[in-house]
Structures are given as structure tokens and as C-alpha cells.
Amino acid sequence: MRKLSVSHAIREGMHEEMLRDESVIMLGEDVGKMGNVFGITLGFIEEFGENRVIDTPISEAGFVGMSVGAAMCGIRPVAELMYVDFISVCMDPVMNQAAKMRYMTGGQINVPMVLRAPMGSGRRNAGQHSQCLESLFTAIPGLKVVCPSTAADAKGLIKAAIRDDDPVMFIEHKLLYAKKGEVPEEEYIIPLGKADIKREGKDVTIITWSRQVFFALDAAEELAKEGIDAEVLDLRSLVPLDWEAIKESVSKTHNVVIVHEGVKRSGFGGELSAQITEELFDELDSPVERVAALNVVPPFAPTLEDEFFPHAEDIVKAVKKVLNK
């Protein structure tokens, strides 16, 4: 099968949706002439015109708010934040407008918009350009939250997100953009809320998403050398959550490690741990363990940043602790 980078896969998914549905538009900083800072929308403005591919000023509250308004009027905006960290200056249109519009109007108004935003540590971008904020969005009813890992997932999920009638936070990991993976030639969609077992195993379930999927896979290989058979469950979307997949895997392995790149305190891992403990307690052989970033600001210096977020060896350690090995 052909291999594409994650950024190419997202680009291909969006391109197909732009061709399929002329109500789909792209807007954000540098998405037009420059084709986005990661080249994801390169050539779109020439192909689809300035009416559908819009270079915005640096006015996140303004253009995200306008995306909400356009989405209420028959357009499907795919808006882009250059970094998810910039959500701080446009949280109102996301949290109080897009997320609440349908409920507050008694189901009258849908807001079919996607807000794409790259996240993640490891690029030495320091405190304001490296955060993982997905747990913030999961705390806001009305939003769907998607965090793809592989190229194939990214393509199938962006297509589903664009077709979804609810506001979707589509959070990409910037260190995955260049990562290549197999992507089918034929058209396909991956429905939101369907987790994927990236590696089957019987001893422990590692629940994770986004870039940490790959660290978990590396950890699983290490563990295999010591005879530990880890299952890696990639949630792919946090809202909706594929509870059935979690339940099935936990009921098989009876041990759980949750891994995410955002800070540990109030991270989505705590929520998952609580749900598993509340509902699957009898299945567990040991307490649920979390591996997450330290509760500090993303640092700049390589020695500090590498210490800040989880790597494969942290996951290996956590699995051994859970299995008492």
C-alpha cells in the first residue's frame, strides 16, 4: 500500500471533502497563499478560489466567531489555529457559542464546523507553543474531540469531522505531520468514536491517543522482549468515547495504563481512570496507572522538555509497576 505522511493524509482528506461539498471552506492564518505553515493546504487557494480558502488576519476570536456564524448559515468551515495554545484568545466562540448553540436553541441550530489545531511537545517551542489541551475541550459538553495518530486515521477522521453536524475539535500532533503510514487509495471514512487496537496483547491495556500511540508501541516492543504482551488501544476520539472497546480490552487484560502527553493533573487520563474504576473494578487486577506530562509549563531546553513529557521508557516502567514486575 502507498505511504503518506500525516500532513499529506489530512490534506488529501480535506481536498476530497472540498471537491465533494462546495459548502466546505478553509480559513485561518496563512492557510491561503502560504498553504499553512506545515504545507497542509498548499495549492488549495489556487484550486478552490479565495471565496473558499481564506487567509485571515491574526484575529482568532474574530475568525473562529465568524466560523460559528457561517456554520449556522449553511457553510461548513474548517478553521485552523496555528497552534492549539492560541485557543486562549478565542475560547468564547468555541466554549460559549459553538458548543452551546444547539442546546440553548432547543436543537434548532447546528454548528457544523471543524477547528483544526496542532498540539504537542518535542519541538522545543517552549511554554506557549507546545501544550496538549484536549482535556480542556472534553470538559465542554457540545464539542467533539478528535486526536488522530496515524496517517490513515488522520485522513478518515478529518473526513468524518467535516461531515459531522457538530463542532469538532480536531487536534493534530505537529511531530506526527512528517510521520508516514499506509493510506488506502480508495475513499474511506473513519467514524468518530471508534477506537482502534494498534497492537493486540493479553497482559495489559495501554490506552492512549495521538503521538503517545507510537511511544506506547515502542514500549510494547520493549516489554515483549521481557515476555509482557501489551495491548495498545488508540482511542482516536475522546468525545465520543468508545467505551465498548475499553471495556472489552480491560476485560481481557485486567490491567490498565493510560498514557497522554498533556499534563497529568486534570488530564483526560484521570477521567478514564475514574470511569474504569467505577464500572470495571471487578475486572481489574491492579490499580489503574497514569503516565502523563509533569504538572509544569512546557520547557524550552531539550534536557528539560524531554524530562517534561512521557517517553517509551516511562510507559515501560508504568506497565511493570502495574504488573508488579
Binding site: 474574530g62 475568525f63 465568524m66 466560523s67 456564524g69 457561517a70 448559515c73 457553510i75
Partner: peptide, 13 residues
């Protein structure tokens, strides 16, 4: 901005 966005939709359509 929601109003401006509605107007953007009119322009696009």
C-alpha cells in the same frame, strides 16, 4: 463575529 460570519456565508453562497 457571529453576525459577520453569517454575512460571510451569504457572500460565499
Amino acid at each position: 463575529p457571529i453576525g459577520a460570519g453569517a454575512a460571510l456565508a451569504s457572500k460565499i453562497k
